[in-house]
Design a binder for these strands. Sequence first.
RNA 1: GGUGGGUUGCCCGAGUGGCUAAAGGGGACGGGCUGUAAACCCGUUGGCUUGCGCCUACCGUGGUUCGAAUCCACGACCCACCA
Length: 423
Amino acid sequence: MRLFDMLQWRGFVHQVTHPELADALEKGPMTLYCGFDPTADSLHIGSLLPIMGLAHFQRAGHRVIALVGGGTGLIGDPSGKTDERSLMTKEQVAAYVEGIRRQLEYFLRFDGPNPAIMLNNADWLAELPLLDFLRDIGKHFSVNAMLNRESVRKRIEDREHGISYTEFSYSLLQAYDYLHLCREYECRLQVGGSDQWGNIVAGMDLTRRLLGTDTFGMTFPLVTKADGSKFGKSEAGNVWLDPERTSPYRFYQFWINQADADVPRFLRFFTFLSQKEIEALEACIQSEPEKRAAQRRLAEEVTRLVHGEDALAGAVKASQAVFGGALQGLDEATLNEVFSEAPGTELPRAVLAEGRALLDVLVGAGVFSSKGEARRMVKSGGLYLNNERVDAEDARLTEQALITEHIAVIRTGKKNYHLLRFV
RNA sequence: GGUGGGUUGCCCGAGUGGCUAAAGGGGACGGGCUGUAAACCCGUUGGCUUGCGCCUACCGUGGUUCGAAUCCACGACCCACCA
């Protein structure tokens, strides 16, 4: 299958500037780039789609450039934003660039044959003399046309928010990037999110005018969910690629919990599984949805890709423990990670020695607001200690309640956890 | 400014002197079922003790009464109609 057809089958193609791109890609290696905004020190899964896109190009033998916007990040892209953004400091942006650079290295090969290239547009934008820029670049942009751009027009019509000259100029800078990369790296294609269409086209125009080179542009679709909610958010907030921000366990769980209706698309987007494999998994969703083989495979593939084999094994093990029942055998570090979002209470070890009444301790720890509520919970079979149902209202808390050196895991209902740490 | 109606537990809402910790619904929580889903079914939903016991509760304050969410007075707030 041709690369372009494969991308189309996977759903990566939202818009293309020229249909000829499909053939052009078959004629030999092409250089392409995609920009990443340093708006935080980590990418979140919203950036996963462009990253996967780049990876497909690299696998097909094309030369990919990952451009981190260390320069444009200082200005701020107005695309899709309703408010003027507050400027970030140079130090902040520099730090973010570093964080993002490290993460991209997990997805793209930067060594061996046909290595990917990582660039930072601060390297050329920061040096750009203002007068030269205005004469050589600015001359080619019609303000009339720019005012018609959706992202700009909205902001101008809305007196509440407005748009500063700084953000208005953003598109020129991104256009200049394309020009620069075309000149220095023979870059012929820019890809990006669907909100980047305008910026991409602006870059192509500039490149044609100044270099006489025809280039391509292509955008990826916005990732949507069948139920209309926003992709990329979990109950705990944004899902990040940085394991410090979103633990591999949470990450794995995020994918496991995707709806049946979304999984086929997500398998195409976020895994390298073949068409055959994906179609087989789709058949499973139809024939035996309760097994959720597709979700499991999706979670496995993406977690392995982002966090590696070891982290995946840990996440699977933790998931089995939490949802399968037995907590025994998990170490303290894993427990703390799995329950990192669950509330916890520190208690003196003496409590165990005294053998205090479990319900009293739980009321004290804020698990229940009254003893009556605690009793009711036990009566209806909703209280668990280390995932084993507590059925005696007068149960006492002793050393035996500990699952590890310091921890006892309290659960009410299906998934409300509370950790008791004895120090 | 006048007249009439209202203020109930997390929310809505029944309740017009004792049988009312207060119907019913929603929500929430728990159990069952299940696919770490949806739907559905059952249960719980003031506190303390848990066997019938006590305490605190129906806007606030005071009163009538053996007994008041329920009657009366005053106050606060809300709504409607009239000016």
